[in-house]
Nucleic acid binder design. Structure first.
Lengths: 178, 178
DNA sequence: TTCTTTCTTGACTTTTTGGTCTTTTATGAC
DNA sequence: GTCATAAAAGACCAAAAAGTCAAGAAAGAA
């Protein structure tokens, strides 16, 4: 319902009606609507983090970044609504600004991203750069699926998307090693 | 206020208080909150459209697309909050799906985009492709400003962003002339 | 200045929503 | 089968938000 009509526009009664439970039951599980959002976000973030875990450790920063981009794209493909719920609204803007007030579940995600690239960075990567990496990872799937249909043939996808991904990786490498 | 705390979280009284007018005055101008959103969107869309008008007609589809990308990026840079208000939430998702229910002010924007590329297309471009062009234009600024700070030197921006823009243009050309 | 018309105000009513609490129903131990 | 404990339900209350309207202020014409 959150991705259908938005979090704020969804009333608790909407939720309990669709879930076919009484209101009391809802409040037995969640203190308020925000708690539901947090639970959903945590679940989505944890699955997103899981899906970024590489099968074998990457050889280079480029490989690590490419893997991250692909993982986010795959997650978007499978769970577009949840992805949007996460990165929706002002979060993308916040990520680019200095805003330090990202919610806790997201802080864990940023930390995880930091670990993906830490091995290849000469010195610890500052938080601001990790946030911009996150913004790029959030923005990439939109571009990706604007250029190629999810249903397109694998080869066609690669020919169109490879240059795009390469240029983003190159930009991120420049950002992270600057 | 909408971009500060979100549309739904903003009460009419919040608006009238900050505008320092009575509630009755508000309802003399707008039927409800949604009408304000529509008015703001229309204003933003019309300015965005204006800013996409090229000084001289482009020579090629590539040039036209590059111009559009740059214009959207510039608009985002100047009016990030409004840009986000427009493309926020589920619109990006809608653009990629078959969803035909975009609001009227946005329909005008899509039509305008169609005219930018019409001259270079062999046959009329289907709406679905225009929508994907719009999704790419909406997504691009996020990538752009993730890779380079708005305050960065012009040369640095170009070296990082040019490959990115090129690959997007190439992808869009493939999409539109397929 | 005075009268008419239009605009503005904010107290008031209504509607919606969040959150509570008692009653009822299910579960499981003995 | 009975009792104790936990869970579910939804009527209920309270707060907040939307929306109305009669009284007063401002503007303009004569």
């Amino acid at each position: 319902m959150f991705s259908e009509k938005g979090v704020d526009a969804t009333a608790i009664e909407d939720i309990t009606e669709r879930a076919d439970v009484g209101k009391g039951t809802f409040y037995r599980h969640f203190g308020n609507k925000e708690a539901v959002v947090v639970a959903l976000s945590e679940s989505a973030v944890s699955r997103l983090i899981d899906s970024t875990k590489p099968a074998k450790p990457p050889e280079s920063l480029e490989a690590a970044l490419e893997h991250l981009l692909n993982a986010h794209c795959a997650f978007y493909k499978e769970h577009a609504e949840e992805f949007l719920l996460l990165f929706q609204g002002r979060l993308l803007l916040k990520l680019q600004k200095e805003a330090a007030d990202v919610d806790p579940s997201f802080a864990g995600y940023l930390k995880e991203l930091g670990q993906h690239v830490a091995a290849f960075a000469p010195q610890p990567v500052p938080d601001a750069k990790i946030r911009r990496l996150a913004a790029a990872l959030a923005g990439y799937p939109f571009l990706h699926f604007a250029l190629v249909k999810p249903s397109a043939a694998a080869e066609e996808i690669e020919t169109v998307v490879q240059p795009l991904r390469r240029s983003i990786v190159a930009g991120l490498v420049a950002l992270l090693s600057r």
